[in-house]
Design a protein around this nucleic acid. Structure first.
Length: 629
DNA sequence: ATAGGGTTAG
């Protein structure tokens, strides 16, 4: 019987795969299908001697709310039919509602489609029922029937439909619904607005989410959370955290989920003093660290520069799942502490947690960041042999990265050829990295071209390809790449570097002069460069874009955003010892050398986070991560 | 009668 219901519903799903506002199709066809599969809803009547038949509509309603299964509802339904009470709108609606609440959508819809009379609530409960179980096409189709029924749409049904748009990421449909909201004059309804914010945010349109959000006279915490999470997802964690502050100013008290969202935003931003603040804030609430919140904090601390703080959280947690372990492994991994990452693996097994594919990505990337070649190879083979986890592109990517950085280009290439999976952006990127280290221009060209095909809007790949040609003296090809870039109107996007100073962040771009203390920064930089040059620093022009004129090159070389940030840090905080820097793209080799030397000469600890890892320069001439690339 | 939010890699 259950089987039957499911297949009937999936057939309606197919039936109803039409656009919400297309002219054809109606509820009747869907109900015919349902009837065909479920002919006898009333057959239960005979076997239901439900003691003395209630005669008042209210008795049916109160009987219904006590029903815990569709079978029980059917018994009441049978009685209501016999008592000719099922034609009472309130009774019928309650039946539909309860069927839907208990997941019996086929029964709900069968009854709904036979109702002689329907009001807004009838439509609302059936539309809501469909969306609740994920039958989005049915939900939208039914809503469309509702719109055409001539009844005025109301604030009860709209949030359900908007949720369907959100879950199916149908922004265009969502916008259509938004028009209907205006037409119905419901734009200031709280529930509808909240649902609109949710829909826009999840469809990636944070700006429109924000517009609706700002117009709401009052917002509850869930809406704040949705908005914050939308900003974090779309790469604007600053705004996410700014909203968090505003939320608290308005006296809204965050709950666990809100704090998890903020921790996630903070992890994306990578700013340690914010991480500390959020952690303090959470501690003040005496929330217990559940698995999700704890894991979010581990990730947050790790990505804000401290594997040790992450570990403190990890140790304090009572329950840890596979995600928690994977996060901790990756926390050590991104900080170049491969040994500690690997040491966690047997402990994880001991505590009864099985690794998954992401655990192995964490493990392999930890090996790659720490140069643990043999261990990496062993884990790579072990994952399939011992854990039946077939390596996917991500695992191959880690291996190519690992082998490439360790100077084993041939082995990396062999692996690449052996892989039958489709190569994605990350894979080609790792291969390209390996080729560049070892000067294999032929393969580098192939990788860069593949990357250009996959991501024609990413300026970085044009620059890489043109650099490969320039290094080989193939100037016509350099020009061709530049033309291609221009014809596609792709523009270079310079990376930002952020530095944390006294609980504030300052950001710089190459050649930036917008900082109020720009003059002092450039003076400090000049002095620093002189010091470093006398200590043996020679700028490496290889890393500067070749499409910049030669005379500009030298200038750009000295005003990299990383260098400006370091200069600012030295100037603004002569007394502190640690500088924290975040670069939103990979730190180039020249800057790496520069920072390492600056750390030694100035006796500063400098922690740098770039795209995928941290570099800890300890002020004494060594760097715990990334030294061997 | 009413919905809605969160964690792991690269």
């Amino acid at each position: 019987m259950l089987e039957g219901k499911r297949s009937a519903l999936s057939i309606i799903s197919l039936e109803a795969q039409k656009s919400l506002f297309s002219s054809s199709s109606s509820a009747a066809s869907a109900s015919a299908v349902l009837d065909h599969f479920l002919p006898a809803t009333e057959s239960a009547a005979q076997e239901t001697p439900f003691s003395p038949a209630p005669l008042h509509p209210g008795s049916f309603v109160s009987a219904l709310v006590r029903c815990r299964s569709p079978a029980e509802i059917k018994k009441v339904h049978a009685l209501a039919t016999t008592a000719a009470m099922i034609d009472n709108l309130g009774v019928a609606n309650k039946h539909v509602y309860m069927y839907a609440q208990r997941g019996a959508l086929a029964d709900a819809y069968a009854l709904f489609s036979r109702m002689k009379e329907r009001d807004n609530m009838s439509w609302s409960v059936i539309v809501g029922g469909f969306v609740k179980v994920g039958y989005y096409a049915n939900c939208l189709q039914t809503f469309r029937d509702f719109v055409r029924s001539g009844l005025r749409i109301d604030n009860f049904t709209l949030p359900f439909v908007l949720r369907a748009c959100r879950d199916t990421v149908s922004l265009r449909l969502g916008v259509e619904i938004h028009h209907l909201v205006f037409k119905a004059g419901l734009q200031s309804d709280f529930f509808v607005s909240a649902a609109l914010v949710d829909m826009y945010a999840r469809c990636g349109d944070v700006d429109d989410a924000r517009k609706v959000f700002d117009r709401m006279p009052k917002r509850d915490m869930v809406t704040w959370t949705v908005m914050m999470s939308g900003y974090a997802d779309c790469g604007n964690p600053e705004e996410s955290l700014a909203l968090f502050d505003r939320m608290r100013e308005e006296g809204v008290v965050p709950d666990k989920i809100a704090t998890v969202t903020v921790a996630f935003a903070c992890a994306k931003l990578g700013v340690m003093h914010k991480a500390k603040m959020i952690h303090d804030y959470i501690s003040s609430f005496n929330f217990s660290l559940n698995v999700i919140l704890g894991t979010a904090l581990i990730d947050m601390y790790a990505k804000c520069g401290s594997a040790d703080d992450a570990r403190v959280i990890f140790d304090r947690m009572r329950d840890r799942n596979v995600i928690t372990w994977s996060s901790m492994i990756s926390a050590y991994g991104i900080h170049g502490r491969g040994r500690e990452a690997l040491d966690l693996f047997p402990l994880m097994l001991q505590s009864g947690i099985r690794p998954n594919r992401i655990t192995f990505v964490s493990i392999l990337s930890a090996c790659s960041h720490a140069g643990l070649v043999d261990e990496g190879r062993q884990f790579f083979h072990s994952m399939e042999r011992d854990y039946s986890i077939e390596p996917d592109v991500k695992h191959y990517t880690c291996m190519v990265d690992l082998l490439g950085r360790a100077g084993k280009l041939c082995e990396a290439l062999e692996l690449s050829e052996k892989m039958t999976l489709e190569k994605d952006e990350g894979f080609w990127g790792a291969l390209l990295g390996a080729c560049r280290i070892h000067g294999n221009a032929v393969l580098a060209e192939k990788a860069a071209k593949s990357l250009l095909e996959l991501r024609p809007r990413n300026s970085g790949y044009y620059v890489l390809l043109s650099n490969i040609y320039a290094n080989a003296g193939r100037w016509e090809d350099v020009a061709e790449v530049r033309d291609l870039m221009a014809s596609r109107s792709v523009r270079k996007t310079p990376g930002w570097t952020w530095i944390e100073i006294n609980n504030e962040t300052h950001r710089f771009r190459v050649g930036d002069k917008s900082h109020p203390q720009s003059k002092e920064i450039y003076e400090t930089l000049k002095v620093l460069i002189e010091k470093l040059e006398s200590a043996g620093y020679v700028p490496d022009t290889n890393f500067v874009l070749h499409d910049i004129d030669e005379e500009l090159k030298a200038g750009f070389l000295y005003t990299h955003s990383e260098k400006l940030a370091i200069a600012f840090g030295l100037f603004a905080t002569p007394e502190t010892t640690t500088l924290r820097i975040t670069k939103n793209l990979r730190v180039c080799g020249d800057c790496h050398t520069f920072i390492k030397l600056a750390s030694t000469v100035m006796h500063r600890e400098i922690i740098v986070r770039d795209a995928h890892r941290f570099h800890h320069f300890n002020g004494g001439g060594s760097c715990s991560c990334g030294d061997y690339w």
